[in-house]
Amino acid sequence: MPSQLGNDVVGFILPFVVFGIVIYTWYIYIFRLCYAKLFDVNRAEAVAFMTIGTFFMVLTLISYFRIYFSYPGKAIHATPVSLSTPPSFPRFYYSPRLLDLRKTGRRDIEEANETTSLLPVVSVCRNDGLPRYCDTCQCYKPDRTHHCKECNACILKMDHHCPWISGCVGHKNYKFFFLFVLYCAIYALWVFCTSLPTVIEAMNELEASLDPQWIVLLVLAFVFGMTLWGFAGVHGYYIINNQTTIEHISQRPNEIRIDFDISGQNYEIVTTHHDDKLWDLGHSRNWSSVMGKSPWGWFVPIYGGLGDGCVFAYNDSLYDKIIERAKRQRMMLNPSMT
């Protein structure tokens, strides 16, 4: 297995590699191709190519800097629990009537009126009913939080660890990651599609000199463009379905705890299939939860997604099914209870 020192070295070097490739390809495209080859032939076309190429290059770098310097979101430290500790009321829980739809955050049940009408509440738990807890980080793990071994931290709504940013992609920087991949793909394919005709024309001119760096530009633009377009498509699919990479590839079922009161003792555990999209709210709401509510800000790498990353709205249909299954389990175990 790679050492931590090796991971740190790679994580330090790769951001410079990303920056170097983007700037190098931009230099070739602007000065060695558009200005040197096209400017005297068709000045308007050269200026348009240079302007659009620079625009997407700038958006690529801004998005990269935003994700590189943004916090993915980490679970907070809490008092340790032991295996012998009886289950208590979970620290993170969801109920439709406790969710603040404006911020996709939650109100504490103790602060809400008519506590009984706000129950039951649901949360992802361990198979023994205890709230999910990380012994390494000594913190309770909200739904969709996972421990990253490389970062040695529990990341909120963790998608994956990315060596290219020397850190994790999580709840607070996922939008910037998606925009970086998207803009880099657009930039690369724009450069490739507008450079290819010029290079082919130069190759057909017997007396014309062929700049070797044009070939380097085409190869880099094609490889990164096609690769990142596929990557952007995959993550676009995850966004509109409200999934993370970890959730999409996971084959493990979720254990859902349903608390019927705030005592921490009156609960049932329901096991859901790993294919159940617990947090799928429909394409529109899924998209807004990551990209923001305002269409004007969807493709601007300034503000992140909605919510605090600790509580997420459940799919209404699955939420109702989980509650009904919990009630049936309760009736089967104790028919006298309602």
Rank of each mutant, 00 (worst) to 15 (best):
C151T: 08
R132N: 06
E201Q: 13
L210Q: 03
M203Q: 07
F222L: 15
L196E: 04
W214H: 14
E205H: 14
V181Y: 12
R144N: 04
F224V: 11
P142S: 14
T198P: 02
R144G: 03
L196A: 01
T115H: 13
T194A: 07
N152T: 14
E114V: 08
I109V: 15
C184V: 06
E205V: 09
F180P: 03
D159V: 10
T198S: 04
L210V: 09
H147W: 11
T227C: 06
I215A: 00
G170D: 06
P120H: 08
E110F: 11
W164N: 09
C134Y: 06
F222H: 08
G167T: 08
L179A: 14
D159Y: 03
V181W: 07
A232Q: 03
I186A: 10
P120E: 10
K149S: 15
E111I: 00
T116C: 00
G170W: 02
D135G: 13
R144H: 08
W229N: 12
F224A: 09
L196K: 03
L182S: 06
V216K: 02
C151S: 10
V223P: 05
D143W: 07
F178A: 00
V124R: 13
T227E: 03
P120W: 08
P120S: 11
Y174L: 09
P142H: 13
S209I: 13
F178K: 05
A153R: 14
F177C: 04
R144L: 08
K149M: 11
A202G: 11
F231D: 09
T136R: 08
T227K: 07
L119N: 13
A112L: 12
C162W: 14
F222A: 15
D211L: 09
D159K: 01
S209T: 07
C139K: 02
F178Q: 01
F176D: 00
G170M: 07
R107N: 00
E205P: 01
V122T: 15
Y174R: 13
L130R: 12
P131C: 10
N113I: 07
Y140T: 04
T136W: 03
P131T: 11
V234S: 04
Y140Q: 06
F231H: 11
Q138E: 13
Q213C: 01
F180S: 05
C154N: 04
I186S: 07
T136A: 12
F192G: 05
Q213M: 05
A202F: 10
C139L: 01
P163A: 06
L206D: 08
T116I: 02
T116D: 04
A185K: 02
G170R: 01
V122F: 13
S117V: 15
Y140K: 10
D108P: 01
F176Y: 12
A188I: 01
Y140G: 06
A208V: 04
W229E: 06
V121G: 00
T194L: 00
P197F: 11
I165S: 06
L189Y: 02
L217C: 00
T198K: 10
T227G: 03
E205F: 09
Y174A: 05
V199Q: 08
A112R: 14
Y140M: 10
C151W: 09
V191P: 03
M226E: 01
L189H: 03
